[in-house]
Write a protein that binds this DNA or RNA. Structure first.
Lengths: 260, 260
DNA sequence: AAGCAAATCAATCAACTGATTGAAGCAAAC
DNA sequence: GTTTGCTTCAATCAGTTGATTGATTTGCTT
């Protein structure tokens, strides 16, 4: 029985329709979000029957989980492989190399095409703001371990920062990574319309991106004085422009006296 | 007729149920996303009738637009006010002050409570990855102008960077901001479980956050040499661990030979 | 008190949702 | 050639979706 199933899987690798469903779901979820897509739309694009989703997976939610698992598993595996290789040596790696090890698998490798990378990037981003506990658990299962490893490694490179400082900077880094994976092509959208930047050139992206992340980790410890000076400067400018200052912070929203 | 409506609006400011619907929609959309919430759930929480949504707005989509407009308008207004005040003086402001002007309105002011800030932060984040052209247009309408102003101002502070470098760093900054607005309380989720950090203390957050953003803009221009060295280091470590290198980049995903 | 428009309501619409069923298709095993 | 078991399919389920209707209530003006 197991042999027969193996033979089947050989002739029709990994189950044709199963993969087609996963691909279609990934594409459509990336575009419209999990709740924005119906099983019928997915199965229509996958040229499959609605029941096939319940046959291969157990329902819509499990299909989403399978979509995430398929890519995230590989991506995180590459991430861990690189971090472990870097930290295996006698002396700690360079900050840039460690950052690259964490960041590159999501931006370049693990994907056959830029479209696939973009798609999963969007799914990943959508997933990252999910509030449902079950889905958050899926996230944690995949992404917690490499985060812990990265923090351990970066603490050896920059020992002068507290754990909280490092956590903060790591948090910021993850934020940029998710945003970057999900929003390719949006860099030039803010400024002028005549920009020739190609957002799909991930190598160029990494060239800009990695040094900035390194700068984040190399920034001096957070200083109250620096921050207060900035607040004072903004308040001074606002006062000169005859506007209310920041500190009193009078509520500017008049619309929701009933809210909360 | 106009007078009567004005009098009405005075006695029942801005329409009680209209505001209740907006509040309920904001809360639920923040939690479950636009497609994850039905009009019935919204109107149930707002103690209103389903038809009220179509009466005050025109439909579900327009309700979402109203939810975004209400907050984003105020937030972006504060942002512009601060940037303009800072750039009005004879000499350019400090980098930290400019960043604070852009970042603070979304994190502290404009919101009566931390819950409201969190809620709109989530809505904002969900909106930022929307692919629907109409919704993207709403985004642009609100957030393009302050971005242009910021880039103009920061170009005067850091003239040695090319426009593309500045755009990149600004893009990264926006990414961190959206992530931070949407994910309060997630900083400590990665590392140990015994962390006492209070993610709702936005002042502490800003103290960590603003200097890091300044470090991003102050980082030296992107260097191919630095990047290539990092790539070489990762590849070397991988080779030492007897694993395939990055450069050949053999496809690691075996699952989607049919995709794209 | 009457008039009137703005606001609210219950009831209903067709369309669509995820899920389930049992029959039919199909290739390999015997 | 028949059996076996994985796969696919059309048909259907009850429940929900956004939207609309027309009647009813509300509160201000005259």
């Amino acid at each position: 029985m197991a042999a027969r199933r193996a033979a089947k899987a050989e002739s029709r690798p990994e189950g044709d329709t199963r993969t087609r469903i996963l691909d279609a779901a990934e594409r459509l979820i990336a575009e419209h979000g999990f709740h924005g897509v119906s099983l019928r739309e997915i199965t229509a694009e996958a040229r499959a029957n609605t029941a096939a989703v319940h046959y291969y997976f157990r329902g819509k939610e499990e299909l989403l989980e399978a979509v995430v698992d398929r890519r995230a598993g590989i991506m995180v595996g590459e991430r861990l492989k690189r971090i472990n290789a870097l930290t295996a040596g006698p002396q700690p790696p360079s900050l840039e190399a460690l950052i690259l090890a964490y960041v590159a698998p999501g931006l370049t490798e693990c994907f056959d095409s830029g479209d696939l990378r973009k798609q999963f990037g969007r799914v990943r981003a959508r997933f990252s703001q999910e509030t449902d506990p079950a889905m958050r658990a899926i996230m944690r299962r995949h992404f917690k371990e490499p985060g812990v490893q990265f923090l351990k490694a970066v603490a050896k490179i920059i020992p002068q920062l507290t754990r909280r400082e490092l956590q903060w900077r790591f948090h910021i880094m993850v934020g940029t990574l998710i945003y970057l994976m999900a929003q390719p092509g949006k860099v030039q959208a803010v400024d002028g319309e005549t920009d020739t930047y190609d957002p799909d050139d991930v190598n160029e992206a990494l060239r800009y991106y990695v040094p900035m992340l390194a700068a984040i980790f190399r920034a001096p410890p957070s200083s109250v004085a620096v921050f207060d000076a900035a607040v004072a400067e903004v308040n001074g400018a606002l006062a000169r422009a005859s506007a209310p200052a920041i500190e009193p912070a009078t509520p500017k929203v008049t619309d929701d006296s009933t809210a909360t």
